[in-house]
């Protein structure tokens, strides 16, 4: 019972934060509601005994990535409200609603309609009625995680390391200033110094 209550509260936080990301006009407010979504997901991870993943979720997502977003928003000085009334492409918002609704209907329909209706929809996906029970087999989740990561998924781990290195170098090369004039990102009239 307490499981369902925790799930409901964190689901409300997740969905509320996500709606804030797509609806709030100010990018800084959108970034803050993105943090709410990340924390809700971290609560779900804790609930399933994935403590290390919850830690990484908070530190990397809510910490590093959102700070990166906020840093770029502040650096570019684009933290003013987006004009929600102007549509550059005719019907873009309606098309977005339509595509999102169709995707949601497809996934939810697949969940509910494809399985044996007597035993719940997840049967089609999993072969049995879906009951998520956290399993702790005497070992901490981080030990199990590390054993799996460094044995079965070692090559993937190395490839991820290479990807991160390439992405870091690529980001630095992309935004490197070619001359001194490129260092001034603000408009001349709006510079603060």
């Amino acid at each position: 019972m307490i499981d369902v209550i925790v799930f409901a509260i964190s689901a409300l936080i997740i969905i509320g934060g996500a709606i804030g990301v797509i609806a709030l006009p100010n990018p800084v407010h959108a970034a803050l509601s993105l943090i709410a979504t990340f924390f809700g997901v971290a609560v779900l991870f804790v609930q399933q005994e994935a403590h290390f993943l919850a830690l990484v979720q908070v530190v990397v997502y809510a910490g590093a990535i959102v700070v990166l977003f906020l840093f770029v928003i502040m650096l570019l000085g684009v933290d003013r409200a987006q004009e929600l009334g102007v549509e550059p492409l005719a019907g873009q918002r309606a098309a977005g609603v339509a595509v999102g609704a169709v995707l949601l209907a497809l996934v939810v329909g697949g969940l509910f309609l494809s399985g044996d209706p007597d035993r719940g929809g997840a049967v089609a996906l999993t072969g049995q009625s879906g009951q998520v029970v956290p399993t702790v087999e005497g070992e901490q989740d981080v030990i199990q995680l590390a054993r799996d990561l460094f044995t079965r998924h070692l090559l993937t781990f190395e490839a991820t390391g290479i990807l991160l290195t390439v992405a870091t170098v690529g980001a630095v090369v992309l935004v490197r200033a070619r001359g001194a004039e490129d260092l001034i990102l603000d408009e001349p009239g709006t510079a603060q110094h």
Binding site: A11, G96, V97, V99, G120, G130, V132
Partner: peptide
Amino acid sequence: MLLNQFLLLAAVLFAIGVYGVLTR
């Protein structure tokens, strides 16, 4: 907890994200 709870929540979150990518 049912697996479907998580799958439904993730489906809603995915659809919201797709809407944001298309319209922001």
